[in-house]
């Protein structure tokens, strides 16, 4: 899976917007959206919100975690905890990336928000890498991934199974050679 696929999945998350136009309900395959009334907040999928925002048809209402104080708290919590902490949003990287590129003026201190997000990502990635290394060295057979977001899992996805594959091949061939020797005796 590519990062672009994950962004596609993240675009299905709902977000509130304030439209500046009036339109009746939209009937889409994925569900009904609207009706839109100028000045009244309405919840729409992220992809629609981004599109409307590009056409200057609405104002985005940022999710409450897109704020440098909240993110600094999350970063602090992540630094303190030994395991992974729960993220405010399942696709925080993708959502933040889309919102920051669509309407950077809607987020106060957007540069600081960007830096904090990058910090949180780096923290979690280094944690992930060291826990994966421990997992392999200790020869564990299962791992709990419930606090990880899809983007983070994806960043390790091809590498970890590929290495386990190779380890398994080595283990299997050493087992079979042992077996054949006992049969010879």
């Amino acid at each position: 899976m590519d990062s672009a696929h994950i962004e596609f999945l993240a675009e299905k998350l709902p977000i509130s917007i304030v439209p500046n136009f009036t339109h009746e309900k939209l009937y889409l395959i994925a569900g009904d959206v609207g009706p839109f009334t100028a000045g009244i907040p309405v919840e729409v999928p992220l992809w629609l919100a981004i599109d409307l925002c590009h056409r200057r048809k609405c104002r985005l209402i940022m999710p409450d975690w897109m704020d440098h104080e909240k993110l600094a708290e999350i970063k602090e919590e992540e630094t303190q905890a030994t395991g992974f902490t729960k993220m405010p949003c399942e696709h925080y990287m993708a959502v933040a990336q889309l919102l920051l590129s669509a309407e950077p003026e809607g987020i106060p201190d957007s540069q600081r928000v960007k830096t904090l997000l990058k910090d949180i990502w780096d923290l979690r990635m280094s944690k992930l890498q060291s826990s994966v290394a421990n997992f392999i060295v200790s020869g564990g057979s299962y791992a709990k991934l419930d606090q990880l977001t899809l983007m983070e899992i994806n960043s390790i996805r091809p590498l970890l199974p590929h290495s386990l594959d190779q380890l398994h091949r080595l283990a299997r061939s050493s087992n079979t050679s042992e077996l054949s020797q006992t049969q010879d005796l």
Binding site: V132, A133, Q166
Partner: peptide, 25 residues
């Protein structure tokens, strides 16, 4: 010697995986 060689290969790869992963990512 096959048995010890097999476990030796596995433990070598296990020990080196951390470096490979850190470098590649």
């Amino acid at each position: 010697e096959g048995a010890t060689l097999g476990t030796h290969l596995i433990s070598t790869l296990k020990k080196r995986l951390r470096g490979i992963m850190d470098n590649s990512l």
